[in-house]
Design a protein around this nucleic acid. Structure first.
Lengths: 215, 215
DNA sequence: ACAGGTATCGGGGATTCCCCTAGAAGGCCG
DNA sequence: CGGCCTTCTAGGGGAATCCCCGATACCTGT
């Protein structure tokens, strides 16, 4: 029996490209395409796909919320998350939302086929590099709150992070906080370690995303 | 004679999808794929494609700068910009950089084929909705928007700025661009001088604001 | 030809980064 | 209570960087 597939992505040309690739494969059939989360849920109800390939960033209702809804409304549909972000936040959230696979858009198409086979058999599938994130969270125990700067970092660390992201250099921060330069360095190191970010530029982008500073 | 096409996008699965669609079309042949701007320029020189389909947001060297380089180095290649942004900033800049077409990723594949036909004949092609933006700027005459990254900085400086904001350290940049560490330092110094920004964090925020990188 | 901007490098000292180690204080759990 | 973890603090030492100089070469427009 052919697997029915629903493709959800807000870029039409991407949907068409993926459809073209899938149509060359035996055993699968693309039954529809959705351009946002709401349409994804609607079409999933109408078409009863076996597999839903779900982009995460979509306007209106994003892929994570859409997956959450599908888990309630259409349990039979196996969701494969497909995203350009390898951000831990997205990964953990959509997996918790019921997705059975997480692929990066940078993956080869072959990996997508592997994922389709895996979830069809009831197994999970994670892109290389994603596994680390999930296992990392797993061994750290059930962290129910989302991994934000406020749960991950200590108050002092957030303080240092903000100053770093605002552009102060190590010496200035040490003066401002009445600390040794070495202490500030240690804080920076711990922050980078916790967040898995290895540069000031990366920390700045993170701080903006988390709302610690404004552009 | 078949048109040789080079696909530039940082997502492998997107490149594969597009290739699958194009391979079903007569008269065109995909000769290669690049995952960033530098590779795009390199492959364009090696493969001499007739058409370069260029995504705008790519790591390292973005599509706008890549188009600018191609306009100097490989005049024969017609660039089709393919982006998810319908932001006027991107449109005007890449058109000025020499692109002959601008398509949204939300476009249908058919539109891409129309664009390929158009630029092959030496015509321009703009996605619906994009035309307004260009004409709008056109009738308003040369609207020198002051103080943007595109008017203040040189191409090389923008290139270095993007890499800095992406979190690469000086040495990595020098290796990527095949330059001396000292040269990269000088560029950074000039960038900071021109922009009046004195830290990597500040440069990162600036690059995000200007759309050189995404969060 | 000349001025100006751009792009490319170097010297050298101050500074920071990055790897270690480590003590004091507070909380948590068997 | 006695370990154990986390946090905050700080230092040593070498590599890498930042930051001030200067310098050469190449365009481009006047």
């Amino acid at each position: 029996m052919e697997k029915k597939i629903l493709i959800c992505d807000d870029h039409k040309i991407f949907r068409e490209g993926l459809r073209a690739l899938l149509e060359k494969q035996p055993g699968v059939k693309v039954v529809g395409g959705a351009r946002d989360g709401l349409e994804a849920v609607k079409l999933a109800r109408e078409l009863s796909p076996d597999i839903v390939i779900m982009d995460i960033s979509m306007p209106g209702l994003n892929g994570i919320e859409a997956a959450r809804k599908l888990a309630k409304v259409k349990k039979s549909a196996r969701v494969i998350a497909l995203s350009m972000h390898n951000d831990r936040k997205y990964v953990t959230e959509i997996i918790k939302a019921g997705a059975r696979a997480y692929l990066l858009k940078d993956s080869a198409f072959e990996e997508l086929m592997d994922a389709i086979k895996a979830v069809s058999c009831g197994r999970f599938f994670l892109s290389a590099g994603i596994t680390n994130i999930v296992l990392d969270d797993y061994i750290k125990g059930p962290s129910r709150d989302p991994r934000s700067a406020f749960t991950l970092l200590s108050a002092r660390e957030r303080e240092v992070l903000q100053l770093l992201a605002e552009g102060l250099r190590t010496k200035e921060i040490s003066q401002k906080l009445a600390l040794s330069v070495k202490t500030v360095e240690t804080h920076r190191k711990k922050i980078m370690e916790k967040l898995g970010i290895g540069s000031i530029a990366g920390l700045t982008r993170y701080a903006v995303k988390e709302g610690l500073i404004t552009l």
